[in-house]
Amino acid sequence: MAGVFRDRDLDRRGRVREVTLHDGFLRHKSFRWLKISAALSLAVTLGYFMADVTPRPNGGSWYGYTLGTIAVLLILWLTLLGVRKRWMTRGRWSLKAWTSAHVYLGLSLIVIGTLHTGFQLGWNVHTLAWALMMLVIVSGIWGIIAYAALPKALSSNREELTQTQMLEGLRAIDRQLHEAAQPLAPSQAALVQKSLDQNVFAGGLWRRLSGRHRGCATARALRGIRRGDGLEKVQSLLERKSAMLARLRRHLQLKAMLEVWLYVHVPATFALIAALTAHITSVFFFW
């Protein structure tokens, strides 16, 4: 609660406004870091057009070096979020404030980094650094969109079931299915067995992300068993399993979409730092 009271604030009409701890990192302190980043971007853009550099704007002019220095310091600081996130704190330099700054200052790098290039791009280590920076930022934007949009979908899909509960439900249905299928003829029993044997977590990244499961043994069993008769119990169990699988697979899909950007964001960040090392060394090497 201490945090709630400390974050108590007055709005324009003088009413006491409580900024709860649930206020997301995007809206943190009424978009403080968005404003700072926008101001920074605007300032460097104005500077870009006002700076007297010859023969034309590029990374090797005094303004180019200035932007490059700002950009590399920002990148290193942004990378530190990976270290900083392991300590949760509150207050001015709370993790939330830090994350908010990470997001908005990261976005301002699009402007700073691109103006640093002077729009001179080519097939070289310098443009590689820029491209990796853009890849990191774009994957970060994907992450923000995922964090903003997906948790709601995730929670409405699982309807207060935990992952363990989902898996337990599936096991229960499987056990019942196994029991109920005992009297089946061998061909139908084989269909049910395939459904039982199928690993719900199997498949690669694409299947996770797309949510397409063409070879679903349960769906096939349902089609096969329907042709038989007097097997209502097995049928209804297969239908229940189908529904449970659909929920579980949607859950896996949403989780994959929430996670996948980090598999780009983090390695690309390290590649970016390596490319920056090569970029800066090359500049001074061939000074």
């Binding site: 992952q163 363990t164 898996l167 499987d174 056990r175 299915l177 044997d197 719900v200 989780k255 994959a256």
Partner: peptide
């Protein structure tokens, strides 16, 4: 009885 029955590391299975 079924694949779901097999023991597995849930955190790993549900992640990428």
């Amino acid at each position: 009885v079924s694949d779901a029955e097999e023991e597995r590391d849930e955190a790993r299975a549900f992640s990428l």
